[in-house]
Nucleic acid binder design. Structure first.
Length: 581
RNA sequence: GGCGGCGUAGCUCAGUUGGUUAGAGCAGUGGAAUCAUAAUCCACCUGUCCGCGGUUCGAAUCCGUGCGCCGCUACCA
């Protein structure tokens, strides 16, 4: 690890801005949000200056089409989804420093500045295009909203520019019998000319490749996609015929009725939201700049794999065209979370039409937040797609978090409280086994930290559980329930050591299960530090310091209550009936 | 078609730069224990590391090739 969080002065973490045209589901969480939140909580706990920025992506044609279908305004669409998604994130404990909106007025300014600087730098040019236009709706239609007959194979459900049946691609005018794919539009789309603005990506070819070459440590899937693009760069259209978006900041009659393409302005939302955060918290117009223009800032993007081209190629290129902007140090691209269908024995892609999605809202109404966080982290699709499976959920949550860690904490604390008047007992002379257990705490904490620094969240969580496993082995070997009858000093020493493990478990679970950590800290009468963007003490080091003998303890309750098998079966049934969204 | 990822035990996966008899958890079998959320611990069991060819003293690991699964393919965001 030549580069870690500690070699930079501060870390800016972003999670992909979810599109405010639908509710977020567990697939989103497992990829771009939970790992980011775990990473952020870890950094804050270590006292690293950390800012975590997210928000809703609220522009683009699909939102206007949803509004059209529901006969409401685009504003009502984005308000609905922004509010719901922000609420879901909050309840899940996704700890954004700011959760912004690309519809904020400030965002117009940031986006237009980006555009103007690129234009002045000669990185933007225009080109005339032929696009589908609906005479009835009096608007241009994106290719996915135009259906027709494939000119190659005759498939009748072909999209405007490609056929999903035979896989061929073609120019718009080649599509046979075009028709609009929007309810209520019965007209036949026609082709109409329109002049658009393009970002000249090939001009960034060399710096992009040099930048990618500087990051051999990135995940294979991210590097693969990024190099694929970087080696075949083409100019990319960054405007659309729509009225829902950021206006093009040019005095040009062709710019009227057009807006900047949502994918150009979405990543700029990270910048806008940082600006807004600095205004809100410090009333400082320039407070954002240190996070975006200082070489001491490390930027890390968490995204799904569909987002890699934008975060590993296009946005970096856009940033290279700006004065002084830093580039991402890491782009953590995740694969997808699929749904395992127990009836068919097949893994299937989450989709609305199948009705197999699990919304964050539904999950939170029916499961403890830590259970959701634990399972999703345990199966995070880091290197390949993974499956959400109710049986596995039960095995992992009940069998690992509850049985191994939760029960260890409980058996240790219950016995301590009963036999030592609610206090951590004094340590007598330490035998080899005691010392080995104490040493294992430090080793395991370091191992967990190492995994987190490398963005290996599944491994980090596994190492956390491993500490619980080691602790159970130690507990069984020491047999405090036996020694208690003959040797209270030995019993006290064993439980003293166990209490140290419990404390370490409490600290180590902070990034993963903040609710469980808070509950356990209350039992241990510990105050967990809560650092903000300004950083603070390194509490991870503090986790290794020993809980003094005599510290008082609260009567323990089950940290992670097991979920009844029948209850899980009920939820699985409801999910199968399509009620989980 | 092009590009990318993946393929290791019944299941889920780990195997950094090639290096002894390929590992973990779960499941299974047998045992111990009774402090604890019926929670724990110990032992045992299972492998054509997808196939084929090559490089090498040595390959799960590197190269070539074939097969399979998943994804991307630029106007979906």
């Amino acid at each position: 690890m030549e580069k870690t969080s500690t070699t930079f002065e501060r870390t800016l973490v972003t999670s992909a801005l979810p599109y405010a045209n639908g509710y977020i589901h567990l697939g989103h969480i497992a990829g771009a949000y939970l790992p980011a939140d775990i990473y952020v909580r870890y950094l804050r706990f270590r006292g690293v200056k950390t800012l975590y920025v997210g928000g809703s992506d609220e522009h683009g044609v699909p939102i206007t089409l949803t509004a059209l279908k529901e006969k409401i305004s685009p504003k009502e669409v984005i308000d609905r989804y922004h509010t719901a998604n922000a609420d879901a994130f909050r309840k899940l404990g996704i700890s954004y420093d700011i959760y912004g909106r690309t519809s904020w007025p400030l965002h117009v300014d940031t986006t237009q500045q980006f555009f103007k600087v690129l234009d002045e730098g000669g990185y933007i040019h225009t080109k005339e295009m032929e696009l589908w236009y609906s005479p009835q709706l009096e608007r241009f239609l994106p290719d996915r909203y135009v259906k027709g007959v494939c000119p190659k194979c005759g498939y009748v459900e072909a999209d405007g520019d490609e056929c999903e049946s035979c896989g061929s691609q073609y120019a718009a005018h080649e599509l046979v019998e075009p028709r609009a794919n929007i309810p209520g539009d019965t007209s036949s789309p026609i082709l109409r000319k329109s002049r658009h603005w393009f970002l000249d990506l090939p001009k960034f070819g060399e710096p992009l490749n040099a930048w990618l070459d500087g990051h051999p440590e990135w995940r294979a899937n991210v590097k693969g996609i990024a190099y694929g693009w970087a080696n075949d760069l083409r100019s990319r259209c960054i405007t659309r015929d729509t009225d829902w978006g950021v206006p093009i900041p040019l005095e040009d009659e062709d710019a009227v009725g057009k807006r900047i393409y949502v994918w150009f302005d979405a990543p700029i939302g990270y910048v806008t939201n940082t600006r807004q955060w600095a205004l809100d918290t410090m009333n400082d117009e320039h407070g954002w700049e240190v996070w975006w223009k200082d070489a001491g800032t490390r930027m890390v993007h968490f995204i799904g794999k569909d987002n890699v081209p934008f975060h590993a190629v296009i946005f970096p290129a856009m940033s290279m065209g700006q004065p002084d902007y830093i580039l991402a140090d890491q782009v953590v691209g995740n694969e997808y979370l699929n749904i395992f269908n127990r009836q068919t024995g097949q893994s299937e892609k989450g989709s609305k039409s199948r009705g197999n999605m699990i919304s964050v809202r539904w999950a939170l109404e029916n499961l403890p937040v830590d259970a959701i966080r634990y399972y999703l982290c345990a199966i995070a699709p880091e290197s390949k797609d993974s499956d959400f499976d109710w049986d596995e959920f039960m095995n992992r949550y009940n069998g690992e978090l509850c049985n191994v860690v939760g029960n260890f904490v409980h058996r240790c604390l219950t016995m301590t409280v009963k036999n030592f008047e609610g206090c951590v007992p004094p340590a007598g002379s330490l035998e080899d086994a005691d010392q080995e257990m104490l040493d294992a705490i430090s080793q395991q904490l370091e191992a967990i930290a190492e995994s987190l620094e490398e963005f290996r969240f599944r491994q980090a969580l596994e190492r956390f559980i491993d500490l619980g496993r080691k602790a159970n082995v130690y507990f069984d070997a020491m047999k405090p329930w036996v020694t208690r009858k003959t040797d209270m000093e030995r019993t006290g020493t064993s439980l003293y050591v166990c209490c140290q493990v419990v404390k370490a478990l409490c600290y180590a679970m902070v990034p993963f299960m903040p609710e469980g950590a808070a509950n356990l800290a209350a039992i241990l009468n510990l105050t967990l530090p809560e650092n903000g963007p300004e950083g603070g003490e390194d509490a991870w080091v503090e986790a290794k310091t020993l809980l003094p003998a005599g510290s008082s303890l609260q009567t323990p309750t089950a940290l992670f209550p097991k979920i009844d098998k029948d209850r899980i079966a009920e939820l699985a049934e409801a999910h199968l009936r399509g009620e989980a969204f």
